[in-house]
């Protein structure tokens, strides 16, 4: 007479919609959901990824503090409620797909580096990120060296010479140095269905 199953966490309600609006196929959305379930059940099994679970998945420890992990999480969290639903997770990861349009990658990376979300990247933010990177990777460079790296970067990137890098300048910089966008592409996403084959057991569609 009745459905005795426990209520399912909100999640994969309509894989077709996500498949239409991202670069993923329906099967890939379903496989990605398997990854999402794994990450979102690590601390609290509520079908949502909190910051601790995100850090745990990234670093295999929740003890590590990372400016960039925080920044990435905040950008994924488009609803700004401190947790990631599958929808947010899939849409954000879509940008990292090898076949995602380069313009999306350029925009996303600009937002990542625009720490204060002012529409440009200022010198102080670049310094903060360089210092954080060095600290996170245990590297030690003198302040003088850090300053000279930033000088050189601005010399090249800040073509309008106003002490900040706007989106247009960022775009020109990465077009000259495509490797700066390397961290915006995850080859794993190409093979997501083979990495998480268990999706076929929960699939809502016939694979034709």
């Amino acid at each position: 007479c009745c459905d005795l199953e426990l209520p399912q966490p909100k999640g994969l309600e309509d894989p077709q919609v996500l498949a239409r609006e991202t670069v993923f196929s329906v099967s890939e959305v379903e496989a990605l959901y398997e990854l999402f379930k794994k990450i979102s059940s690590a601390v609290i099994d509520d079908g949502l990824i909190n910051k601790e679970e995100f850090q745990l998945a990234l670093f295999k420890t929740n003890k590590k503090e990372s400016l960039f992990a925080d920044r990435v999480f905040d950008l994924f969290d488009t609803k700004h409620n401190g947790i990631l639903g599958f929808d947010e997770f899939a849409r954000a990861l879509s940008v990292f797909h090898p076949s995602a349009p380069p313009d999306e990658k350029i925009d996303f990376s600009f937002q990542l580096y625009d720490l204060k979300q002012q529409g440009y990247i200022e010198r102080q933010e670049v310094k903060q990120m360089v210092v954080a990177t060095l600290a996170e990777s245990g590297m030690n460079l003198s302040d003088e060296v850090v300053e000279s790296i930033i000088d050189k970067t601005f010399e090249e990137a800040d073509t309008k010479h106003d002490g900040k890098i706007d989106k247009e300048e960022w775009r020109n910089l990465v077009l000259r140095h495509p490797s700066l966008l390397k961290n915006m592409t995850l080859q794993y996403l190409k093979d997501i269905t083979t990495t998480f084959p268990s999706f076929v057991f929960h699939s809502q569609v016939d694979d034709t």
Binding site: L35, L67, R71, V130, L186, Y188
Partner: peptide, 25 residues
């Protein structure tokens, strides 16, 4: 290697950007 002197090349190597780890079993 001109890029080795670019701050963003350095920043993009940060572990916090290595989202590939999300896929590690």
């Amino acid at each position: 290697k001109p890029e080795s002197m670019n701050a963003f090349a350095l920043i993009s190597r940060s572990q916090g950007f290595n989202l590939g780890n999300l896929f590690e079993k």
